[in-house]
């Protein structure tokens, strides 16, 4: 999110965000071969890619909405929903996977009642999976907003999540 930090001061109001998006599109010459880069920037500006942002991108780049939306939904990197206040990342690297990472993930799905890539209705948590977060020795691992929890058993999850609101 380096880009997001860099332009944070330029993206405080909706008008500023929109102006910046239009500048980005202009900088990329409205060229359809730059669609992915433009979408990257758009996500950096808005944090996610809601439908009206995709409409703007489509209109300004003279692309069908269905094509832009097709690209966005193809890559799991892009998200059309706002992210939660907290990001929960479950490691499914080899070590974590064989030591119960999948069960941890299933438990999180149940507790949060969302799937991977989604955000809870109260906007508190977004759920993601990662490949090896460097804690293999104490697998399975879960990271919340960058803080790594090791040897996580499904039964401990509620307590851990309780620290975040």
């Amino acid at each position: 999110m380096g880009t997001a930090a860099a332009c944070a001061s330029l993206t405080e109001t909706p008008d500023q965000r929109r102006d910046l998006l239009l500048t980005v599109i202009e900088d990329y010459h409205r060229d359809r071969s730059n669609l992915i880069q433009v979408l990257h920037m758009a996500q950096a500006i808005y944090g996610h890619l809601p439908e009206d942002v995709l409409c703007t991108v489509a209109r300004e780049m003279a692309l069908p909405f269905s094509e832009v939306s097709g690209v966005v939904s193809f890559y799991s990197y892009f998200t059309t929903r706002p992210r939660g206040r907290h990001t929960v990342q479950v490691c499914l690297g080899t070590a974590c996977y064989v030591r119960g990472g999948k069960k941890v993930l299933d438990a999180l799905r149940d507790i949060l009642a969302i799937d991977v890539g989604q955000t809870t209705a109260d906007q508190a948590f977004s759920l993601e999976v990662k490949r090896c977060i460097g804690a293999c020795g104490l697998a399975p691992a879960v990271a919340i907003d960058g803080t790594v929890y090791r040897r996580v058993a499904p039964g401990k999850l509620k307590a851990i999540l309780g620290k975040y609101e």
Binding site: P64, F65, S66, E67, V68, S69, G70, S73, F74
Partner: peptide
């Protein structure tokens, strides 16, 4: 040259449609 239909999502959930919630 309309582009009302395109492939959405990927893999097993691929669907041909107008995109978004449309």
């Amino acid at each position: 040259g309309v582009g009302a239909l395109n492939a959405q999502h990927r893999g097993f959930t691929t669907e041909i449609g107008p995109g978004g919630d449309l």
